[in-house]
Design a protein around this nucleic acid. Structure first.
Lengths: 354, 354
DNA sequence: CTGAAAGCGCTAACAG
DNA sequence: CTGTTAGCGCTTTCAG
């Protein structure tokens, strides 16, 4: 008869680890591990006194559950990923900040993944972004999802929320980018401007999908409403960067004739570039040229830039909230939340006539 | 004799999951799970032919190991956390970007944690930042570590690297901030400036420890070397923001007498604020006032700002590399890597005399 | 070079 | 309300 021989641990714990387990707590509290589990997770069906005893034992032992063990057992990781094209830009950093705050509040971990680091081919090889079972859900920020991804997420039951881009079966948070363009250019038209230049993104930019297109469509709509139209040559790519905006503005403002009297930059950073370009050309803003941006970047106010404000941190926060809601098995409600934008008039725009 | 009865799964898998396990692969390849594990992880002692067969089976089943299971079994999570005061600022976003790139390359997941979300008291309650066993290591960016944390990390064997702040037993990546101040102000002194104002952080700011102090010390050293000294009233807090820099510059440049002929801003963002302040006051830069910043923010070049360049993305990358190296059990080498900085002369500084 | 077996620490039926 | 028990899917000795 072979007695159950106490086996030595199958493998070495990493240096210096010496944590207490749920079993230690159970022994200390004089209950079973199941009860400890229930008590500590706040489940019902635990006597008040028992719960108190368990909690005290846990505290005394400085016990913290091993997340990997509970993830394995429960099949949920309480972790979500936010996938961004890159993280060191004003917009994406702010989205992540909003998402992080909400996740932290709800006790979820937040993984940051750049879509460049999990390139499309890698995703194909390793499954949808290789994050399967690592996260309960994902937030995609201006990242293209292929149909194969969508199918796989559905199959795996991964929660998904998108920002900016609306992808059929998933909830999304976005701006009314048409309204953005309409507000900005409507304002300029109202001020009497008739020749308006646009600092756009790049046609080939895979990152910002409909964003530039929609903003430009809105601009065109505002122009049309005023009986004007948008010359194709008045739209110049600015890559959404300060430098790109500078270069684009140099092109538009440097024209000997047909020089626009106003500029609509699709982002504040491009508008900053335009501000510099104007200075280089000896043009005064708003004296010679009016300028509107988009975002309400923290530098917009000190620079006196008129802009269309969006609340980027809030967008990130709402996306996270929607995702966690969805993960909470509240399920079902696929909503497309279109956030409002507003025109903030500052010193960079002026009536053309006086 | 009781036959092993095939038990029904203990719990429901989350909706729609249908993944293959290591066992499926083992069956498909006609080997044991142990062999699959070894083969797939590239361990030695696996016949070439066997490994090939296993890999093919895995591919065929679209198998991906469950990270939670392997983490639990192996005691390592291949996840690291980067702890920042907040993530939506130029500096921190860039640090995170650098760290993310390296982690992604090495197959590590990166958790972003803001120190505000895991406030000090929470940390006390829940253990060192509550990340125990969730991550193999952590990167602290300008975050204060208390002795209790340090002790706990040591005890738990958590890898730690700090950025900015050097904390006794851990490797760190930092700048020579004294050199930063010396370079910036040395440049100004060389140009003949004798009354130099400093746009600083805040004394009470818990976030940036020695950074402002060191930069100011460097500034003072450069002044001293030139036979000058730093008037206490010439140092004004600017909170490391554009607005703060603007306000501080208004104070310094608005003085009727003793107006500085040059300004040293401890960050480019404050320098941008100063640029605006000068304009508001009708002062020309560099005509009336010279200005030096720190960072080489992407807006510095278009703004023609002379600055002391640091490579923030690189700092993040090096911190991650150091951490992963440490986790690779290469252990031991606690190094303090002080990154170089360099003066970038642009248009915002000029010799005082001509 | 490969297989068998014992867990990692926790959760979730199920039966009291 | 609480204990028992069977795994979650993988890694790692140990014995061939």
């Amino acid at each position: 008869m072979a007695a159950m021989s106490p086996t030595r641990p199958a493998m070495p714990r990493p240096a210096g680890a010496d944590r207490s387990t749920i079993e230690d707590v159970a022994v200390a509290a004089g209950v079973s591990v199941a009860t400890v589990s229930r008590a500590l997770r706040g489940l019902p069906n635990v006597a008040v006194s028992t719960r108190a005893r368990v909690q005290e034992a846990a505290r005394g032992l400085n016990y913290r559950p091993d997340p990997n063990a509970s993830r394995l057992a429960a099949g949920r990781s309480r972790t979500v990923a936010v996938v961004v094209p890159f993280i060191n830009s004003w917009y994406f950093a702010n989205v992540v900040a909003g998402a992080e705050a909400v996740c932290a509040d709800e006790g979820y971990d937040l993984l940051v993944v750049t879509s460049s680091s999990s390139a499309a081919d890698a995703a194909a090889v390793t499954g949808a972004f290789g994050l399967d079972r690592r996260v309960d859900g994902m937030i995609f920020v201006e990242v293209a999802l292929e149909d194969a991804h969508i199918a796989e997420f559905a199959r795996l039951g991964t929660g998904v929320v998108t920002i900016g881009q609306r992808t059929a079966p998933f909830p999304s948070i976005s701006l009314d980018n048409v309204a953005v363009g309409r507000l900005a250019v409507g304002h300029l038209v109202e001020l009497g401007h008739r020749h308006i230049g646009v600092l756009a993104g790049q046609a080939e930019d895979p990152v910002h999908f409909d964003v530039p297109g929609d903003r430009i469509a809105g601009a065109r709509a505002a122009l049309t409403a005023g009986g004007l139209d948008l010359h194709p040559t008045s739209v110049v790519a600015g890559r959404f960067t300060v430098e790109g905006g500078h270069d684009a503005a140099m092109v538009l403002l440097g024209r000997a004739e047909e020089r626009p009297t106003a500029l609509f930059a699709l982002s504040d950073e491009m508008a900053f570039g335009a501000l510099l370009a104007a200075r280089h050309l000896g043009l005064d803003i708003p004296g010679d040229v009016s300028l509107v941006g988009v975002d309400d970047h923290e530098m917009a106010a000190p620079m006196a830039l008129t802009t269309v404000r969006q609340h980027v941190v809030d967008v990130g926060a709402r996306a996270a909230a929607a995702l966690l809601h969805q993960l909470g098995a509240h399920a079902a409600v696929v909503q497309h939340d279109v956030r409002p934008v507003e025109l903030v008039r500052r010193g960079s725009t002026r009536r053309i006539d006086p």
